[in-house]
């Protein structure tokens, strides 16, 4: 990663949610960074805490969630400082693209109304959020129609007055992308933005997204479970398993020379990135009954007795540009 101060940095984030059956250790020392203008892929199977991590970054954690340790910094601002409330600063500078375009839009309000509402509370650059006086509304409207044009929605003026069900899934995702980019945020958080779409639409949406953020040098945190998407989109990758960061590095390094056994196994699940397809036996452990030490241990073919005692810390291999948390890496610098 780069030497300059990262735009978003998550360090040693440990988060638990108490439940009736016991404390769920959802995130266990998650660490990664997003530099300015960088696209970082956050990869992991379902149930590994990706969604909770996003909620923590966006400041919409459920009330029961407890941060045990760690920090999330965004452009020098402590995002965990204001409890679970998202700060205005973050609303303005972090755009969000949700997973499912079919359910993210309110069915009984016009698309334009909903886009206006979101832009109202983030504001255009230089505008205080929530303010709608003077000709702000008119300005927002014009800006949003321009955004709809940018995401290739046909006849944007007319689209503004239509309802979500009158658009296809791909078009709805374009609308959500336009909305996320409308306040010109520094960072886009995209939660599996193409999972709900069919394959051909997926490609189009990803290409469009890539173009749009390259124009503005916007950073992006792209959550996905698909290494194919990572190869196409990302500069760097952070691999998570059951709430633990396993390996961080550049997309090239991770895809071509993975170190962590989990990364290797995950890559092996992808036909286009691997010669033979092999699944990973077993399932992600429940965060309540997570094994001590490395949580991938029970499914790992290289597992050693030490793995189940204490989790190996994230280390930088000598001369390497990445972080790995695995006993296989015995030489390195602690991150």
């Amino acid at each position: 990663m780069k030497d300059t101060l990262p735009l978003l940095s998550v360090r040693n984030l440990q988060l638990v949610i108490p439940t009736d059956e016991g404390t769920a250790k959802i995130l266990d020392r998650v660490t990664f960074e997003v530099a300015e203008g960088e696209v970082v892929g956050l990869v992991g199977e379902s149930g590994c805490g990706k969604s909770t991590l996003i909620k923590a970054i966006l400041g919409i954690l459920p009330n029961q969630a407890e941060i045990v340790s760690g920090e999330i910094k965004f452009g020098g601002l402590d995002l965990l400082g204001s409890a679970t409330r998202r700060t205005w600063h973050a609303a303005k500078d972090i755009g969000f693209i949700p997973q499912d375009p079919f359910t993210a839009l309110n069915p009984v309000f016009k698309v334009g109304v909903q886009m206006m509402e979101i832009l109202r509370w983030s504001g255009l650059p230089g505008e205080p959020p929530g303010y709608i006086g003077g000709n702000t509304r008119q300005r927002h409207r014009e800006h949003l129609i321009k955004m709809l044009k940018a995401v290739q929605i046909p006849d944007p003026e007319d689209a503004f007055e239509r309802y979500p069900h009158q658009f296809s899934g791909g078009q709805r995702q374009r609308i959500l992308i336009a909305s996320a980019l409308s306040s010109r945020p520094k960072l886009i958080v995209a939660d599996e933005p193409t999972t709900a779409l069919d394959v051909t639409t997926q490609r189009e949406i990803l290409i469009l997204l890539r173009e749009l953020i390259e124009d503005d040098k916007t950073s992006m945190l792209l959550v996905t479970h698909d290494f194919g998407v990572v190869a196409q989109m990302c500069d760097s990758v952070s691999v998570m398993y059951a709430g633990q960061t396993m390996e961080n590095g550049t997309a090239k390094d991770i895809i071509h020379t993975p170190i962590h056994p989990y990364t290797k196994r995950l890559l092996a699940c992808h036909p286009e990135l691997s010669d033979e397809i092999v699944g990973i036996p077993g399932t992600v452990p429940s965060p309540i009954f997570a094994p001590p030490g490395c949580r991938f241990g029970p499914r790992c073919t290289s597992c050693r007795p030490a793995c189940s005692e204490q989790r190996p810390p994230l280390m930088k291999p000598v001369g390497g540009q990445r972080d790995v948390a695995c006993v296989l890496l015995d030489q390195g610098v602690r991150v």
């Binding site: 919409i60 839009l105 509370w121």
Partner: peptide
């Protein structure tokens, strides 16, 4: 519903999400 958490995630205040959405 998903549209509530989406609006919440984009920074719309809770009271605005309730009325009118």
């Amino acid at each position: 519903k998903e549209y509530v958490s989406y609006q919440h995630a984009t920074g719309v205040p809770f009271r605005r999400i309730i009325v009118p959405y």
